[in-house]
Amino acid sequence: MDDFFFSLVLAGISVGSVYALIAIGLNLTFWTTRTLNFGQGSLMMLCAMLVVFLASQGLAMALAVIGGLLVVAALGVFVERFTIRPALVASGGSMGWVVSTLGFGIVLQGVAAKYFGSQAMAFPDVLFTTQDYVTVLGQHLSLQYLVVLALSVSLILLLELFVRKTVWGQAVFAISLDPELALVQGMPVRLIILGSFVASSLLAGVAGILSAQIGGTVDPAFGFDLVLFGFVAAVLGGMGCSVGALVGGLAVGLISKLVGGYISTAAEHAIAFALLMAMLALRPQGLLGRPEVSKA
């Protein structure tokens, strides 16, 4: 196998695992409220920028990361409280959250541009440098890509374990199936919804840091493409299905890297969305999405 192809594949699945992380963040709030935080991309950007900023102020890298994640988690609370809850309380199902979460993202992007400037900032090398590699079977494997892949896959597995094996995880799933029944059975639905937004924002933060690490830079518009690909991964895999999100993410990552490498980077978006459209025409429930379980 030639080196160029192989490096594209590794880059593809590594980037794809980050898309999967984003997709799962979107899934979480979709489960609990049937809404998506379209500001997710801005949260990724903000978290990465904060890490750069805090580190540049002399803070240890670990503390800078924790600081960035804390801010993003707090913004998750804000998003739930001020953009989602009002729409859910409104009877008849308001679609206001679409506008509010989008607006939130745009405002965040504006604020970041104002305070950090709209220039791309270099993201420090935390997980090795772009030059570090290991050699396996004669192939050079970028350590940075490997670590990013390992981190996001473990995070996804942990989350999946939580959802499947713990009562609280099952409660999240139960709320997605029948929120009213969950309420009547005494599940603290409101708290779980809030938790899902915090967790989703944290996932966005982690995804932001990992992407910035791979890409090397952050700028205020940085999250937009990422969340787009994360969204494609979520829908491709079957909205709400974690394994599907992982498969979808890897597929989107691979395809976009291969297209970028062999055809042109400009075609990445076009191909990703062509894929999405074809997929939806053939399997409306997504690759691994399950149809309803019910008896006639």
Partner: peptide, 8 residues
């Protein structure tokens, strides 16, 4: 209305 978590 037979309310259960049907997929569980």
């Amino acid at each position: 209305g037979r309310r259960l978590f049907r997929q569980l």
